[in-house]
């Protein structure tokens, strides 16, 4: 792929001034790419971009403070970086962003479902992209899947496919998939009666194993070792296994991300039991966008819920 080579040249060009560049390389299976930390030319050769470039490389930034690092970013990854910068959690000067036009990434749950009855995802030996399709090299012959059928949900409502804040942008910019996020997924959820919604979450949370993969995959969950979920001092949460404890944790997680979550979906992707965690976070995002006109990862100011203004311009509390 021409664009892949162009990105590699951009990486190679930037690498001398950086401690490493984070992108994607081959993963444990043909359908899974993994984060790739490139430190020399040999590493750069292993770089792959495209439909499998799922992981959000912004995740690693807070732990790499102090070093200048490069990142190859999709539009959504760049929003995470933007948010970290807006919150002073990383320094923009210490980051070199290489952007490229993203046309969607795979959702492994959907791919697994699509392959149901034909082969296991792990049996796929290779993948190539052909325009709007992906062609899998499977044991029983080639399998052709439409990208839109196996792409992540977030890709269908992508407003920012290009990393606008990139230092170097490779390729032609892609058109946004939608102009505005109508939060139709939330509306569908909210059509359920309150009882049904409660029952829904209780059922979903009953599967939670409190592995904290959602938290660990979140590029904006920067407390890490000091997360309230595991802290004893202060002892906010019990380690109990009840549904309410799990829901409590997830609601805290969502609340802590209110107005900060860029909707990259890494929490939901990392969840080993498939809880629709992004729904909670998107409910907050919709609220914050509506109330404060703040779009996480795009706006450069401190998120509204993490600061204090005497008067919010968008909230007409008092008309003086």
């Amino acid at each position: 792929m021409a664009i892949q080579d162009d990105i590699k040249s951009a990486i190679a060009e930037a690498l001398p001034g950086l401690s490493c560049v984070i992108g994607w390389g081959a993963g444990p299976e043909a359908l899974r790419a993994a984060p790739l930390f490139m430190r020399d030319a040999a590493d750069v050769d292993k770089f792959t971009a495209g439909f499998l470039a799922v992981n959000n490389p912004a995740l690693f930034l807070p732990s790499l403070k102090g070093a200048k690092v490069g990142l190859v970013v999709k539009g959504c990854d760049a929003r995470s970086v933007g948010q970290l910068v807006a919150e002073n959690l990383v320094s923009r000067e210490a980051i070199h962003l290489i952007g490229y036009p993203c046309r969607g990434v795979i959702d492994m749950d959907k791919a697994t479902a699509a392959l149901e009855g034909r082969c296991e995802p792990g049996e796929v030996k290779g993948l190539r992209e052909e325009n709007e399709d992906i062609v899998l090299d499977a044991p029983g012959g080639e399998i052709r899947l439409a990208k839109k059928d196996v792409a992540a949900d977030k890709c269908a409502r992508c407003r920012y496919p290009n990393a606008e804040s990139a230092d170097v942008f490779v390729g032609e910019k892609a058109a946004p998939v939608v102009e505005r996020d109508d939060y139709a997924d939330l509306a569908a959820f909210e059509n359920m009666a309150l009882d049904a919604r409660k029952a829904f979450w209780e059922k979903e949370m009953s599967r939670c194993i409190r592995c904290y993969a959602c938290r660990n995959a979140c590029p904006l969950c920067v407390c890490r070792d000091h997360c309230v979920a595991s802290s004893r001092e202060p002892h906010w949460l019990t380690q109990a296994d009840g549904v309410r404890d799990k829901l409590f944790f997830q609601l805290i997680h969502a609340t802590h991300l209110a107005g900060r979550c860029t909707g990259c979906g890494e929490c939901e992707r990392a969840c080993p039991v498939g809880i629709p965690l992004l729904t909670l976070k998107r409910a907050f995002s919709r609220q914050v966008e509506g109330l404060f006109g703040y779009t996480a990862g795009i706006d450069r100011s401190t998120p509204p819920l993490l600061t204090f203004k005497l008067e919010e311009p968008a909230i007409k509390e008092r008309e003086w």
Partner: peptide, 13 residues
């Protein structure tokens, strides 16, 4: 200080 990540939000508010 162990927990502080130096994000300056406290200074702002």
């Amino acid at each position: 200080l162990n927990r502080c990540v130096g994000c300056r939000k406290c200074i702002e508010v």
